[in-house]
Amino acid sequence: MPTQIVLNHSGDTRHEFDAADLEALAEAEQRFKKLTGKGFTAATRTRPGEVAVVRAFDPTAQETLFYPRLVGS
């Protein structure tokens, strides 16, 4: 089942959704837009160990990872 993984202080929060369920799909897309709008980067795994940044919601992605904006530390 497709999963959106949001990194946070607890490790991560996972949101699974059924891509065949239009309501769940819309909710996942909203979450994608909300997070990326707040500066989160969204990334998916293309092959084991290979990653790609995604700019638009992809309902076929099995896992989408979100991490907060990067800053110098």
Partner: peptide
């Protein structure tokens, strides 16, 4: 690093 407080594994992944 990410702007939020994250654990080491998450920071390294980002």
């Amino acid at each position: 690093a990410p702007s939020a407080r994250l654990v080491p594994g998450d920071v390294m992944l980002a």
